[in-house]
Design a protein around this nucleic acid. Sequence first.
DNA 1: GCCGTTAGCTAACGGCGTTCACAATAGTAC
DNA 2: GTACTATTGTGAACGCCGTTAGCTAACGGC
Lengths: 244, 244
Amino acid sequence: MAQPASRRERARADTLRDIRSAARAVLVDRGVDGLALRAIAREVGLTAPALYRYFASREDLVEQVVADLYGELCEVMEAARDAVDPRAPGTRLLVTARAFRTWATTHPAEFGLLFGSAADGVVPESPGGEGPAAVAGRRFGGVFATLFAEIHLRRPFPVPADDDLDPGYRDQLRAWCAELPVELPLGVMSVFLSCWVRLYGLVCMEVFGHLRFALTDAAPLFEAEMRALGKRLGIVDEWVPPRA
Amino acid sequence: MAQPASRRERARADTLRDIRSAARAVLVDRGVDGLALRAIAREVGLTAPALYRYFASREDLVEQVVADLYGELCEVMEAARDAVDPRAPGTRLLVTARAFRTWATTHPAEFGLLFGSAADGVVPESPGGEGPAAVAGRRFGGVFATLFAEIHLRRPFPVPADDDLDPGYRDQLRAWCAELPVELPLGVMSVFLSCWVRLYGLVCMEVFGHLRFALTDAAPLFEAEMRALGKRLGIVDEWVPPRA
DNA sequence: GCCGTTAGCTAACGGCGTTCACAATAGTAC
DNA sequence: GTACTATTGTGAACGCCGTTAGCTAACGGC
């Protein structure tokens, strides 16, 4: 862990950090569309071509920022999770989901970069590796998946039998399961997917304004959905009020 | 309905249609990001500044395209709906939802323009009027809302009592209800929102690739969710197999 | 035939991502 | 201390973008 950093290397690392935080700053007050290379360079006090000494392209730079943001989001969620007794995984899921929504609504620009429709390519595809954004994205997904698995481990909720699943669906779930560190019943994974769609879809719709046609504040809807999810997972008794 | 169209007016109307269909073509094979004014002009055989004789700005042109696409999507959905006996509103909802998903997956670029995160401002806000895209968007929302209301009218499904709803939530639902043509119990609207999030959120996630981490084909998940929704709405007996 | 309106053009501005050639600096070998 | 090289910055330029301004031709009504 030493730092044999030749002055130059330290300077380079510093500039790298500066650029990434400048990019973050530009993202926040210029929005996703305003995240221009020249704007970032201006913020750091450099010219645009100089950034090419540090990143192969704008896309590359953005990917690093995405990875940073995933990391930050994960830490927020994990902190919320770890503040709750591990023996109450239902409560853990609840507070983690709330932390996710809170971060999303308080960091709309960052959330848009991570989860917006423009992130088509950035969002991790099924195959492994790729860029740092992909691994960071998997870490994010793993947080919820793990909580989910723990809930089912401690207090199994009803899941469809393998035979009740559509054959094609079953095969896909099996393929996905094969990539995961632990093996889970396919029914559990199908329930996870269903719950994930409800949670993630709701937060996306709120942040991207797709609920403004009806609501000005989606918090009560979110809480109602969380309660419905809790009921589905048999963890209503672990419910706790928000902003604890 | 006569056409006192002075040759000029007819020519103008023709060019207008040409531009919009060219925009559509560019959208399809260049994607949302490739929907550039100059590209559209090239497709029509004009130069970019010429388009300003027809549209105030690129944003304006895009809004017209959005309105066109909403119209097309609505017609597809309404056609699917109207092919089913009105006395089976549950089946109508099912086939309409399937038509929605099918259009979305077979027209990803168009869907991205209508429902992507970049459509922040385009997606209709709660206040009335505004642009043609907003009214087209309301027509779209109305299709599902109406089906939903008809289902509840014909065969009421269980909904939360007003007193069971969070007071702040209740007020928002009331405000929303006031804008609607018909008056509905607040509990029905809350159930509609919940179902809407599941349906719409799922389709968005599929098209925008947010399910690729687990699935290559989201059709079975969609069908499973539709079945769950049907159960929630007490219309399982109206279920029909896909691609009828 | 005249004249205002309309629809098209070219040229230009500032911005974008990106590449290139060049200058200055930092580190290294003798 | 002096040469040499690698690194990090620069400005100029290319081709794209949305948009504006000024010009030219054709159309339509009198």
